[in-house]
Design a protein around this nucleic acid. Sequence first.
DNA 1: CAGCGTACTGTACAAATGTTCAGTCTGCAC
DNA 2: GTGCAGACTGAACATTTGTACAGTACGCTG
Lengths: 207, 207
Amino acid sequence: MFNDPDQTARANIRTSALELFAAKGPDAVTIREIAAAAGVSPGLVLHHYGSKQGLRNAVDEYVAALFEVLTKGSMADMAAPGADTPGVASGFAELLIGHLPPHSPIPAYLRRLLLADDPAGRQIFRTWYNLTLALTKQGIASGAMRPSADPEVRAAFLMINDLATMLLHKNLAAVVGVDPLTPDGIARWAADAIDAYSTGVFRLENE
Amino acid sequence: MFNDPDQTARANIRTSALELFAAKGPDAVTIREIAAAAGVSPGLVLHHYGSKQGLRNAVDEYVAALFEVLTKGSMADMAAPGADTPGVASGFAELLIGHLPPHSPIPAYLRRLLLADDPAGRQIFRTWYNLTLALTKQGIASGAMRPSADPEVRAAFLMINDLATMLLHKNLAAVVGVDPLTPDGIARWAADAIDAYSTGVFRLENE
DNA sequence: CAGCGTACTGTACAAATGTTCAGTCTGCAC
DNA sequence: GTGCAGACTGAACATTTGTACAGTACGCTG
């Protein structure tokens, strides 16, 4: 899925850049490094993308477009949940990742975009939020979710709680021993999240 | 509070480095830039810290030590909540930030440490998690929190949900219109978080 | 075949940057 | 006063890195 059949040198450069940017961050990657990974000369990188910034923009746009596609795919899953498809409680992030091959650099790149505080990341954040808000209002209307006095904040709350598992999964794996992005980690994590969101975390005083 | 009276050139260099690292990231800051901000020559930076990496380590250690102090202070607040001290629901992050001057670079630096996936950040993450886990178990034992089948994951869940507001507050402010690190943002955010954690988010089927 | 545009290479260059170092100044011990 | 250790400066150096460019190979069009 989403295996780009484009094997031109231009596409190879973009793909290599995507992987290296995701792994080390754009600032820590040199054009020579990208060229070597793509099997071309450094000059060709500039020939196709004008500058390093141009290449960064191209990769950003590519990932943003892919994100839109993934979003639509995840929405379809949401509307018609299959046998083992987790509900909304386990979050959209896992759903998105489920649409990608096992070691795709896309999640790591998305992580950088979301944390970078630049226009590309903010646009993705906005898309994600609008989607979450729509689902939240829909859930409240259908009775699946309890009403909230502040639906906008409620949607943001649910969204970034979900995002947090993607942003911090390495720390979680190292410290807690549960990586919420691995198959068994997902299960443990989702079970507790659903429990927390359903029965609540704090006990009311009059209980 | 925590205004270091150390005004030696050595301390000034560390302070300037801390601010610049927090704002732009260590890789994007040059030794010359730090020296200029501290009002010294570039050579002196190396004289005191040996190398740029040495300076980074020194800043990391300084922030880690400060984090320990802040943690203890926040725990004291937790044990004896004052008039307007929010409960555990609004999270530890806000409590920590409340112990710092308004425009302290510490939160931004902590953010970088936690997202960097290096030993210094992992140690802070670990301290934070151990604290959250202890409070969670204590809350369950006292009856203030509902029991969880998986206390470790429950503690991690609550912790990173809290962290997410700190990591993504800029995106939240730009897209949602609520910055959970500003005074009025805290109020709106905490109210909804407490509501979500108390009465739950999803409606059970038999209700 | 001739011409031309595009992909592509490898060299060269200028700027930035971490680091080294010789040397100066200052304060303190003897 | 003399000597010395440490703070501090400013110039210089080596390396890295983004980029420009001249030149080559190749495929398409006329």
